[in-house]
Write a protein that binds this DNA or RNA. Structure first.
Lengths: 132, 132
DNA sequence: GATAAGGCCTCCAGTTACTGGAAGGTCAAG
DNA sequence: CTTGACCTTCCAGTAACTGGAGGCCTTATC
């Protein structure tokens, strides 16, 4: 299988697949002409990584997950720990974005959005927050 | 005012302030010894940027906001449009993270988290999603 | 056999918004 | 006069790709 076939079957861009080889996530064979030859195992690995990435796991976490996946003696506790830690990260980000959203949405609602220059959004950004 | 005073009064790291000068957000004066001398206006600008950044606006958006702020003939509609667009971005991100959170949380709940190797999380990641 | 299209290759640079560190000048205190 | 805290610039690295240049390889067509 050539790289573009793998790309269309995993949904990953060709460039991304090459990049994953660069950083050592996969190591596809090469044919005589230098083209990458992907095995079913490579394909499977890439799909695995793609799925993990789509759940927001970072590359290093993907590496860990792949290692755990290939380790028959793993404890599910280790996987769970990794996933929980990532879940915590996600929750933190959601909370942060939610906070931004609340403030910003409030400001947007307060803004007339007309031809006049008066704007509560700019007023908020420029407000002096140095108390004392 | 020297840079470290500005840093402590704006809450921005010294490095970040220098970076903001590099990319042209501010242009503090220099004293004879080459030290940056920050005016009240510089300070105000930095506080403005810091606040905008904390609401998740990107650097380019900050530039636009600053420009609008300094333009007495602005229309609040332009500010609102910018803010709404950013709000949309935030909503998109929250939705994406929420989706991840839902899936991941489901998987984490399903995982025993014990010494056994069986793990629904890994099973999900490895699942063949190629529906022919 | 020539050529053109398309796929593949590598390598380099750019993206976002900083952050860390090295090498070195400046300033106030003791 | 030296120590330590500032300040300066410049270079490199972060996360995870993405775009593009320059150049083989392959396949189809004339």
């Amino acid at each position: 299988m050539n790289i573009s076939d793998v790309a269309s079957s995993t949904g990953l861009p060709v460039k991304t697949i090459r990049y994953y080889e660069d950083i050592g996530l996969i190591a596809p064979a090469r044919s005589a002409n230098g083209y990458r030859q992907f095995s079913d195992s490579d394909l499977h690995k890439l799909a695995f990584i793609g799925r993990a990435r789509s759940l927001g796991f970072g590359i290093d976490a993907c590496r860990d997950l792949l290692r755990l996946y290939n380790d028959q003696t793993r404890a599910s506790a280790d996987v769970k720990k990794l996933a929980q830690s990532h879940l915590g990260e996600i929750d933190r980000k959601i909370a942060e974005l939610g906070q931004m959203r609340a403030t910003l949405s409030h400001l947007v609602d307060a803004c007339a959005g007309n031809d006049r220059p008066d704007c509560p959004i700019l007023a908020d950004l420029a407000a002096d927050r140095s108390k004392a």
